[in-house]
């Protein structure tokens, strides 16, 4: 897998197949990117689990925080790492120790750890690094177009009116293979 560029087909296959997402580093502060992404993905119908040992006993948008991946107690399809890259190797090991194993390790925009990614891939997991699932979902559904963002997709089909809790079609025609080398260049230079 080329982690500098992901095809839309690859991202789409992940976002349309996973249902349960454990977000490690989910923040209860409503100005943090993890809060934005958690709330949006929950609204789009994903079963979200906030993982943050400092928040146990509280809940995020109605979902109780858990201390670690091993304490979730039910299968998760995807682990999203919303922590700086130095924590990625230990979190990948923790994810691989789960039974059943998750299908996807997703590292947030600005987070990339090639060794940890390679370890997860060697165990048969799909890996995405340095991307935001909210941005990618909004892009492939074109919902992000409301903000003047280039979704790099086209469609001649009439879309449904998005409502709360609704899953949107991500199958619009892609433009240019969805490569974002520019984004990578910007993000890679300030890795944590």
């Amino acid at each position: 897998m080329d982690h500098d560029h992901y095809s839309d087909a690859y991202i789409r296959s992940i976002l349309t197949s996973v249902k349960t997402i454990a977000m490690v580093g989910a923040s209860p502060l409503n100005v943090r990117p993890s809060y934005f992404a958690f709330k949006y993905l929950a609204e789009r119908g994903y079963d979200m689990i906030p993982v943050n040992p400092g928040q146990v006993g509280k809940s995020l948008l109605g979902k109780p925080f858990v201390a670690s991946l091993s304490e979730i107690g039910r299968p998760v399809d995807m682990v999203e790492i919303f922590r700086s890259a130095q924590y990625a190797p230990a979190l990948v090991e923790e994810a691989l120790a789960l039974t059943p194993q998750p299908k996807v390790i997703w590292m947030q925009l600005g987070v990339r750890h090639d060794e940890a990614g390679a370890r997860a891939e060697a165990a048969g997991l799909k890996v995405v690094m340095n991307r935001c699932p909210k941005i990618e979902y909004g892009r492939l559904s074109s919902e992000i177009s409301w903000m003047g963002v280039n979704s790099r997709t086209l469609s001649s089909k009439r879309p449904p009116m998005p409502t709360h809790g609704m899953r949107l079609s991500l199958s619009r025609q892609s433009v240019g293979g969805a490569e974002t080398p520019a984004a990578d260049r910007a993000a890679r230079t300030h890795e944590h």
Partner: peptide, 17 residues
């Protein structure tokens, strides 16, 4: 994935029904 050309983008990009 096909990469649409300039003329196609000029007509379609950003616009859906």
């Amino acid at each position: 994935e096909r990469t649409p050309g300039f003329a196609t983008l000029a007509v379609h990009a950003g616009a859906q029904p």
